[in-house]
Simulated assay, not measured.
Amino acid sequence: MKISHYFELETHVTGGIRESVVHQRKMLDRLDVTYTTEPTLEADVFHCNLMGPRSVWYATRARRRNVPVIAHTHVTAEDFGESFRFTNALAKPLKPYLRWAYGLADALVCPSEYNRRLLETYTDAPATVISNGVDREKLAGFESLEAEYRDRYDLESPTVFLVGHVIKRKGLETFVELARRLPELDFAWFGPLDRSLKGRETTRLIEESPANCTFTGYVDDIRGAFAAGDIFCFPTHEENEGIALLEAMAAGKPVLVRDIETFSWLADGEDCLKVSGADVDAFEAALERLTDAELRDRLGSNAARRSEEFSLETLATQYQSLYQEVA
């Protein structure tokens, strides 16, 4: 079996989508399939990760040639807003476009059950939930970087941290306000700033953040973030899954999340702490609870065990089954 595993705009798109594609290709390397990263219809399955115009062009022609099309649903109108400059304006017209584009697929791959339910409002194309997964090999040896990264960014334990692009949708306002309310704690957001792509409100929040709130920008070894951070605080408002969350769990870090539908699979008080709605007071109280080292250790250990079901080894067979089903 040969797969055309295509990622449109591969040299330009970063963040969670790129990480997911990297994970998928590592899983494909484990399977008894041949794949190319080039778009081609000389394949048994055309699998696209971003439904841009070129992917749509190939998908349309694949259907004419009876080549099955699989589309990943990384992008939705719901999580597109509050990201970068102009994304709010584009989110509304994006939805009808995605309804049409995803409708070209014979099968959809959704990274979470929440994402699958959301896609039911877009198209009736069959959908399979396969997590983006967590690459444990990428995190190997992260503990050895603790001293280096704490020293580099002047962080003291317990450090509250987040990993990923700095965008408002991920709870930037809450993160900065928590730092302002808890000056005795260090806060660090590890990830690209991309200031030229940020809206005025996002830029203002970054520039006016308190002294104990560090925005590191791009880091050369993301393992350093998980080494220097103690409490993974993820107050995101909308998420399709959250690879950085899975990575934090795999690293044995306690996680604090906003109680949104995406995270319904997490058990509050067992493998995370959850905060309902937009209550910053409740986030503050939760962080104060997490200054207890014993609670951090218990939640972190439980999170690490829960993350095992998202390993790439476990997920690879799900792709094999899907390819066999559509081919």
Rank of each mutant, 00 (worst) to 15 (best):
Y58K: 10
R63T: 12
I167P: 08
A91G: 07
Y122H: 09
D135R: 01
T121Q: 15
T73A: 02
Y149H: 07
L90T: 08
A91T: 08
C110A: 15
V75W: 05
A125N: 00
T174R: 00
V69D: 11
P93I: 01
Y58N: 13
N115T: 15
P68N: 07
R64N: 12
L90C: 11
L108K: 02
L108M: 10
F84E: 02
G171Y: 01
K168H: 10
F80E: 14
Y102K: 11
P158W: 00
E143Y: 10
E146S: 12
T123F: 08
E120M: 07
T73I: 03
T87P: 03
K168N: 06
V69G: 08
A77N: 13
E113L: 13
L108G: 04
P68V: 07
Y102L: 07
E113Y: 09
R99K: 14
L94I: 02
A71D: 06
Y149V: 07
F161G: 04
Y153E: 10
A127V: 07
D124Y: 04
I130F: 12
R116Q: 09
V160D: 00
P126H: 05
E156Y: 04
I70Q: 05
I130G: 12
E146W: 08
L90G: 11
E78I: 10
A127S: 08
T60V: 15
V75P: 02
I130A: 11
P96L: 09
D106E: 13
A62T: 04
L172D: 07
W100Q: 07
Y114K: 03
V163G: 01
P93V: 05
T73E: 01
R150A: 13
S112G: 04
D135E: 08
F84G: 02
F86P: 12
T87Q: 09
A62N: 01
V69I: 09
V163T: 00
V129F: 00
I70P: 05
S83D: 09
H165F: 13
S157K: 09
T128K: 06
E146A: 15
R169F: 04
G81V: 05
E173K: 10
G81S: 11
F80S: 14
A107H: 15
P68T: 10
Y153G: 08
L155R: 05
L94G: 00
D154M: 07
T73N: 06
N132E: 03
G164Y: 01
H165T: 09
S112D: 05
Y149P: 13
A140E: 14
E120I: 03
E113R: 13
V75K: 06
R136K: 06
T73H: 02
V75F: 06
D154K: 10
G103E: 06
D106M: 06
L145Y: 10
R63S: 14
E78Q: 14
R65E: 15
A127Y: 03
N88I: 09
E137N: 15
A71C: 14
V166P: 03
Y97K: 11
L145A: 03
P158R: 05
H165G: 07
E148I: 04
F142R: 01
E143L: 13
E143W: 11
E82I: 00
H72A: 02
E113I: 12
P126E: 08
S157M: 02
T128H: 06
Y58W: 14
L94E: 09
Y149E: 07
A101Q: 05
E137G: 12
S144V: 13
P158M: 01
E156Q: 13
Y97D: 01
T128P: 03
D154S: 13
P68A: 05
N66Q: 14
